[in-house]
Design a protein around this nucleic acid. Structure first.
Lengths: 140, 140
DNA sequence: TTGTAAATGCAAATAAATTGCAATAACAAT
DNA sequence: ATTGTTATTGCAATTTATTTGCATTTACAA
């Protein structure tokens, strides 16, 4: 994801059964602009006057259910959100400054293995995988 | 972790540079009693009169820094915490009812691989890995 | 014992997420 | 194009989660 055309976003929304409103289009557009996961606060600042915080919460929650947005935990008291369109990927996060870098590893195989060993589950829909360390800058 | 002796907890705290206070001992003892990650709310109910919520937050935060507690994301608006003593493990979580099952897979190897490909990091200290699905009970 | 720094409890503040509801907009069906 | 229906929105108010400040207390080294 780098940039998404308005029509592309409208199509996505309709396909998932949503009305293609300005607010939701703008939200998805903002998510698509950056490849790092974003906070509600940051999104709501950039969507001021277009889509308020309450609705960002509501939209993101439903998008997560639909499966094209993912909530990510960076060990903070608030969540981070990103589109799951395109290549699914994971992150390496600096525990000092919060810097985020994408990593090109994935737990697909582990997911299969985990499902095999599972007692109470017959399916796994998704997984989260984040790595934590101290970045080179903070190391001094 | 199943159960930790008082002296064992005191030793751990001292080793990590903390004063072995009743509150912290009780907190760690509660964490050790269950193998599922626990919420602040649940902990603070069980520690009523012994260690208040504020201090549970403070203690857990410092224990995370020390490395023997981990905060886990189950896609809720609040955190879950567990001891990382003993075998490090991951979870399979029901997105409907919140049921948690331990899984016996780990991303150790992926961690090494991720570090190799990392640009801004020269070390990785930890990782989180959670699987999400719908449990058999909720499937009806 | 006792001094001292760390830890605690309590109150209050801030931040994050959720809910209710009347007004509005999207879009399917005319 | 117009209209009716229903999802969606904005706003205000709540609730829940987390953090901070500070005076008092406690652990423990000396």
């Amino acid at each position: 994801m780098e940039y998404m055309k308005r029509e592309e976003i409208r199509t996505l929304l309709r396909k998932e059964g949503y009305k293609a409103t300005e607010g939701r289009i703008a939200l998805i557009s903002e998510l698509a602009k950056k490849k790092e996961p974003q906070t509600i606060l940051s999104l709501s600042k950039r969507l001021k006057g277009v889509f308020d915080e309450t609705n960002i919460y509501r939209a993101l929650e439903s998008f997560i259910t639909s499966g094209f947005v993912r909530k990510i935990d960076f060990q903070k008291s608030h969540g981070y959100y990103e589109l799951t369109l395109g290549e699914h990927h994971h992150h390496l996060v600096c525990t000092e400054c919060g810097k985020v870098e994408d990593v090109d590893v994935c737990a697909d195989k582990l997911e299969k293995k985990a499902l095999k060993g599972a007692k109470s589950f017959s399916n796994i829909k998704d997984h989260s995988l984040e790595f934590f360390g101290v970045c080179k800058t903070c190391l001094r």
